[in-house]
Amino acid sequence: MKHTSAAIVTVVLFMCGCAEVETKMQAYPKMYSETEKPISILVVPVINKTTAADAGDLINSTLTVPFADNGYYVLPISIVSDIFKREGVIEGSQISGLPSSVFKANFGVDSVLYITINKWDTNYVVLAANVTVGMSYVLVSTSDNSVLWSYDQQVVVDTGGGNSGFILLDIIQTAVNTALTDYIPIARQVNATAVVTMPYGKYHPQVGQDGDMEVVLKSSREKAVEQSE
């Protein structure tokens, strides 16, 4: 593998030691309701607020896996984004005013996932390199527009640097890594970190059994909704 940093270090930035943590059930009760829990998800084009033009495509191509793995039916993103493109929608902000019921009628889905990339900063500091990614995810019901799941997070992913014991070699190694970084595992990692807080869906073997997991930072749940408004 050309991606040398086998040990990708993720640091989830907690707001402070006293941050309030909720269980999945407390945070997202609708995801456990027989009548309201979604099965299918439509991922609409990402809103990219950063200057990293590639970030949208990277996130787009790594979304299906974590959400499907979490037990949901994700409408094939490749087909969906082609449909949006044909309608002239390339960026998520173009449809942010639409009521989500539109998507129920046209795609037959019971939820829509809105994603905003708030931050994508690459840092290169001689002997180390990392990328800081800030994202918010809001899953909305297509039957009543209510928020089913939301999460905002900032993740710092180490993108390499060397550790050979020879400083010059390490500097070269870091520079090379920064230029050739394979961003797909990074995008994957960012998505996976958020999805940890999402209740399991129909196709997950433990669906309905994860309500007690204390993994949701209340402030992160609320922040995602605020940012989408």
Binding site: D69, S78, I184, Y203
Partner: peptide, 20 residues
């Protein structure tokens, strides 16, 4: 095999190459 019990192969890579 992914945590969800699926096999994804090179999915993200070839899809990303396709949209790029």
């Amino acid at each position: 095999v992914s945590p969800g019990g699926y096999y994804w192969g090179k999915y993200s890579y070839t899809y990303h190459a396709l949209i790029k």
